[in-house]
Structure formats: C-alpha cells, structure tokens
Amino acid sequence: MPRLADTPARRELMVDSLGVGVATGAYGASFGAIAVTSGFSVWQTCALSLLVFTGASQFALVGVVASGGAPLSGAVTALMLGSRNTLYGLKVASLLRVRGVRRLVSAQLLIDESTAMTLKPADRRDAPLGFFTTGIAVFVLWNLATAVGALAGDVIGDPATYGLDAAVPAAFLALVWPQLTNLNARMTALAAAALALVLVPSARPGVPVIAAAGVALVSGVLASRRSRPADPARCKTGGER
C-alpha cells in the first residue's frame, strides 16, 4: 500500500482526494433517486453503483430506461461511455504498475476522478496514493449516497435545483486543470471539447467523448514528430504536465 500522509504534498493530495470523493459522492444521491424513479428497484440501483461504478455509464443506462428505451440498449450506451476507462487505464497502468489481485481490485476503481488524481502529483511516486485515496473515497461515498438517494427517492427532488448538474462539469474542469500547463495540452483539451460538441447532435450518447480521444492520438503523434526526446530512458513528454 502507498505510504500515508508523511509530507505536506502527500497530505494535500489526500485532502484533495477526499474532497473529490465528497463532491462526487453528493452526486451519487441524485443517481440513486433518479434510478428509482426511472423504474429500477433499490437493489438494482445499489448493484449498479457497486458493480458498474462509473457514474456516466450508470446515468446513461438509467437515462435510456427512463426515456422508454430497452434496458439492453441502455447497457450498450453504458458500455460505450465505460470504454473511456480503458483509455485511462493505458496511462494509469504505467504509474501504478499493479499485478495480480491488486490489478483486479484497482480496475474497479479506475474512473475519471481517480485517473485525474493519479496524474496530479508532481512526484510520480505519489501517483498510487492519489489513485487509491480517490478511488476508495469515491467508491465508499458514491455507494452510501446511492443507497440514501434510492431510499429517499422523490424527497430529494431534481438535482438541477441545487446546481449539481453544473457541479459535475466544474469538477471535471478542476480535475483536468493541473494538466493544462503547456500549450500542447491546452490545445488538445480545447480541440477535444470542440469535436465532442460538434458530434453531440448526431452521435449516440458516449460517442462524442470517445471520439475526442482521437484528438489525443493526433496531437500525441504530431508532438512526437516535432521533438524526439534526447534521452529515451527518461522521456519526460510534453503532455505529462
């Protein structure tokens, strides 16, 4: 397991990770409420948060069912959104280097938030601390909040009333922020955002965000062509931070 908060940087990382857990967890209550009002049982709702555990996919499944779609068609949409975790894994794997049972456990915690907090620390030895603190905090709070929301149901009301629908993109903006330190990363984020918006009206939910990964592909290849790292053993790449 990662060492605990023995330096200021690690303490700050843990506080931020718990903060991400609290903010995301709060949104879990609205997931629970929406799922139950969409026709899922309390058990099914809790099973989704425990087993699927990737917010966007869960909302997509519930959203498709709520709008009258077939549950399996909702599952397909959930998988499309979930496929971005595969892409996150490519980056996170090199920082965690987990094997065996730890890899099996880590995989369940691999989501937007834990990925962002894995990349945040300036010292990459702190990456596992960011990953596990965030992953476990979000997992525990997301599941507790889901259960509360599912049981409370309509009492909570529309999450939009509390501005929670804006809190989610703002949280993602705050998560990507520390990585926007160079021009290449900023251009990549902007181009990806623009491409995704262009695709929203015509593509299935989930497709625009996955398509945006193509921007990273193009941008990464172009950046590599422009500057080949002199020392391939270290190869501190432009996009790293």
């Binding site: 971005r84 892409l87 996150y88 490519l90 980056k91 937007d112 990925t115 962002a116 990349l119 993602f172 903006l173 998560l175 990507v176 990585q179 926007l180 290449n184 990363a185 990549t188 984020a189 181009a191 990806a192 965000v209 996955i210 945006a212 990964a213 921007v215 990273a216 941008s219 990464g220 950046a223 790449t237 432009g238 996009g239 790293e240």
Partner: peptide, 8 residues
C-alpha cells in the same frame, strides 16, 4: 498522457 486531457 494526452488521452485523459482530451477526454476530460
């Protein structure tokens, strides 16, 4: 490195 930036 750039994939999380693009997706987020």
């Amino acid at each position: 490195d750039l994939i999380p930036v693009a997706l987020l």
